[in-house]
């Protein structure tokens, strides 16, 4: 069976390529479970996992919950609306209280970059980062890589364009690390106001979407949060869509069978036109399906479950 070197999954940056391969290979094995009539194996029976979500996220949270159930872990999901947290319990107190229940793992989504690092320093459980601020969203990058590998058979040498709000995107950061480590060619694109400083030392960056799409094997579109407009990052959604949105006409510059990806939720007509999101090249729903298998692999490898029953 494959190995994984870490105790926590806080981000893709600290992982070795071998860790990433181990996770993707394990996901491959576990994906088969989800096609069975009874989608459940006893692998993590007796293990307790707490899902601690400080940010609303239907998609990621339900994906983790399905992965946990498929592996027969006992789970508890706690939703901490950020507004009520402001005056209430600190993260440290919450962590200590959860620790007192002796879970094996805490899966946390938090709006503060670095919150999972803080949690991992202050508790004994394994910590899985389900997205922290603008820092990382490692399981999203893993499921994106899994989807790419599934459709193209490899990651090495693929040309992947990541387009949109690079500044605020944890999905971009995790994907950038993962794709670089697995020797794919990444090109970044966004309006200059949404390009974080120093990113060009990690991957080439262009302000012209046509240039980014040119010859791409895959195009990952990032969500534009509508409140960015009030931050003065760009003048209007109309201009954003015209200059940085993915339209059918633009897609012609990509490779013939280009893969169109998006971490969701989609702003139709802003970063991506509906015809593209729903079109034949879109693998957006495959990403969602694969998310469960990838998260099963993360839980399995971190909790050292027994062999997958075949």
């Amino acid at each position: 069976m494959t190995r994984f070197s870490g105790r926590h999954l806080l981000g893709i940056e600290p992982l070795e390529p071998a860790d990433i391969s181990a996770l993707l290979d394990t996901a491959e094995t576990l994906r088969e479970v989800l096609t069975r009539p009874i989608k459940k194996v006893p692998t993590l029976r007796g293990k307790t996992i707490v899902n601690l979500f400080y940010e609303a996220s239907t998609r990621t949270r339900s994906s983790f919950e399905m992965a946990e159930k498929a592996l027969s872990a006992d789970t508890l999901s706690i939703s901490m609306a950020t507004a009520s947290v402001q005056k209430g319990e600190t993260l440290l107190d919450t962590a200590r209280n959860i620790e007192a229940m002796q879970p094996d793992m805490i899966v946390m989504r938090h709006s503060s970059s670095g919150a999972p690092h803080f949690l991992s320093r202050n508790c004994r459980s394994a910590v899985v980062n389900a997205g922290d601020g603008a820092h990382e969203h490692p399981t999203q990058a893993l499921l994106d890589a899994f989807t790419l590998r599934q459709k193209r058979g490899r990651l090495q040498g693929l040309r992947v364009a990541i387009i949109g709000d690079l500044l605020h995107s944890r999905v971009m950061r995790s994907n950038l690390w993962l794709l670089k480590k697995m020797k794919a060619d990444v090109i970044l694109c966004g309006p200059p106001t949404l390009v974080p400083p120093g990113i060009e030392s990690l991957a080439p960056c262009t302000f012209r979407i046509d240039e980014a799409i040119e010859g791409a094997d895959a195009v990952m579109m990032l969500r534009i949060q509508l409140e960015r407009m009030s931050g003065g990052f760009f003048p209007s959604l109309r201009e954003y869509h015209q200059r940085f949105g993915l339209t059918e006409a633009r897609m012609k510059r990509a490779k013939n069978n280009v893969l169109i990806m998006h971490p969701g939720p989609i702003n139709r007509g802003v970063e991506i036109a509906s015809e593209v999101a729903d079109g034949p090249y879109s693998v957006i729903l495959d990403q969602v399906t694969n998310g469960v298998a990838v998260r099963m692999a993360v839980l399995f490898l971190l909790l050292g479950g027994s062999e997958v029953a075949s």
């Binding site: 970059s113 601020g133 603008a134 820092h135 950061r173 974080p196 400083p197 120093g198 030392s201």
Partner: peptide
């Protein structure tokens, strides 16, 4: 501080 490190950490920076 705003720079390559703040970018990697996903923390907003001051130039």
């Amino acid at each position: 501080n705003e720079g390559a490190v703040s970018t990697l950490l996903g923390l907003s920076g001051v130039p």
